[in-house]
């Protein structure tokens, strides 16, 4: 079994003792030091982008959402409880923003399905099977996308982004026992869907 990366939400802050802590940077930002907020952005932007990209595959959209996350965090910094950790608070804003965007986009897709207009890119039976072009990661993403959101979010944060269950509880504002239950359910559902997909692939290969 692969060793899990045990970096915490604010792991990067802990790595280097010479770097100021998140709490100090938050305090300096509150006093009007924008450069301190810049350090927080540089500390978290990579991980935030990765998390957003797990839900939104478009790079430009993901960057817009990540920027909006930081802007909202900056504007709401006076609401942040300094006795808590900055990382989960930031990711809570980011995940909520991303999921809201995702839900709205899904609703728009539904409305396209229920209009008379033909969807773009009609299915062409003569076209080559696109499956070989999909790499494992894309296939995993497709299967994960079929899992209901409340389970999918936990699965992505835990198994793809390596957040601990207590960190996920803080990000999603739920009890850790709830997160563990959802995680178990998400893994079991992923397994069922993955097996189903393999059966379909085998059947398709057999028919060819």
């Amino acid at each position: 079994m692969k060793t899990r990366i045990t970096d915490s939400v604010d792991g990067m802050a802990v790595d280097s003792a010479s770097q100021p802590s998140d709490a100090r940077l938050v305090d300096e930002t509150r006093r009007g030091d924008q450069a301190a907020f810049g350090q927080l952005v540089q500390r978290y932007e990579r991980r935030l982008m990765r998390v957003v990209l797990r839900f939104i595959s478009d790079l430009d959209l993901a960057e817009d959402l990540a920027q909006e996350t930081f802007l909202r965090a900056y504007e709401r910094l006076d609401q942040f409880d300094p006795s808590r950790r900055f990382g989960p608070w930031l990711f809570r804003i980011g995940v909520n923003l991303t999921l809201d965007f995702h839900r709205k986009r899904k609703r728009r897709i539904w409305s396209i399905f229920f209009t008379d207009r033909a969807p773009e890119g009609n299915f062409d039976p003569q076209a080559a099977d696109p499956r070989p072009e999909l790499d494992l990661q894309q296939e995993v993403q497709q299967v994960i996308a079929q899992i209901p959101e409340k389970y999918r979010t936990v699965l992505v944060l835990r198994d793809l982004e390596n957040f601990s269950t207590s960190e996920i509880a803080a990000i999603l504002d739920r009890k850790e026992t709830t997160i563990r239950w959802r995680l178990a359910e998400a893994r079991n559902r992923f397994q069922e869907l993955w097996e189903k997909r393999e059966v379909i692939h085998r059947r398709a290969d057999h028919e060819q």
Partner: peptide, 23 residues
Amino acid sequence: FKVLEQADKTETFEVRESMWPAL
């Protein structure tokens, strides 16, 4: 679960450049 672990690539996204100047 091994499939999930294989999909968990740390190099999923590399920041091309920091978003701080734009922000």
